[in-house]
């Protein structure tokens, strides 16, 4: 990252914090530099940016939000912004066995970076948590050492709902829960449901 990207990245983090008025709560976990996958509910374009800027600065430098390539590589501004918060762009339309997003993610994070993913795949219209796509399961299976952190993002769908361009600066809340791992012999659907419940539980706890 060059100087201008670093500066933009700091400005982005501050803007996101001001705009979302986000309170960050760690419930049953602490900020740590070990490799993690933060998985959260997805209701707004701001989700990735706000969650990323809610992390402490040292963690921001080693955490990469996974974002849709079709949105974030459209236009020079978006591409630049994505490069500043170190986004890992995945093409949602070109997924095949040879071009597996999981392999791309694992290759990109090496043994240094953490990830931010939205396992619902696309933004929820109603705000309800949809079923999880299987990516999280394969990540957990191929890299059992990664800590999987459930995150619940509250109120961001009111700050910038789907289909709106201009944000309204309400207050939001980021709750980060205790890590989960794939159990021995746990099936895909079983695990994905458990992960989904972990996010839902954070929603109820607040």
């Amino acid at each position: 990252m060059n100087q201008s990207q670093k500066l933009t990245s700091a400005i982005l983090a501050i803007t996101a914090k001001l705009l979302s008025g986000a309170t960050v709560r760690w419930r049953g976990s602490e900020p740590d530099e070990c490799q993690r996958v933060y998985f959260a509910n997805h209701t707004s374009h701001l989700d990735a940016l706000v969650l990323w800027s809610g992390l402490p600065r040292q963690l921001r430098a080693i955490t990469r939000p996974v974002a849709a390539a079709d949105y974030w590589s459209a236009g020079r501004v978006r591409r630049y912004v994505a490069s500043c918060f170190n986004a890992l762009l995945i093409d949602r339309h070109d997924i095949s066995v040879r071009n597996s997003p999981i392999d791309i993610m694992l290759r990109e994070i090496g043994n240094k970076f953490s990830l931010i993913v939205f396992p619902e795949g696309s933004r929820s219209v109603t705000g309800e948590l949809q079923t999880f796509k299987s990516g999280l399961y394969y990540l957990a299976k191929k890299r059992p050492d990664l800590e999987l952190m459930p995150v619940y993002l509250d109120n961001l769908n009111r700050i910038l709902p789907r289909g709106e361009v201009l944000p309204v600066p309400l207050l939001s809340c980021i709750t980060i829960g205790a890590p989960i791992w794939l159990h021995q012999g746990e099936g895909k659907d079983e695990f994905l449901e458990r992960a989904r419940q972990a996010v839902l539980q954070l929603k109820e706890e607040q």
Binding site: G21, N155, R158, P161, E164, V168, P169, L170, L171
Partner: peptide, 14 residues
């Protein structure tokens, strides 16, 4: 901000 956050509004009010 606090007031509107607390008083739930609908999507159409954005």
């Amino acid at each position: 901000r606090e007031f509107v956050t607390m008083a739930p509004t609908r999507r159409a009010d954005h």
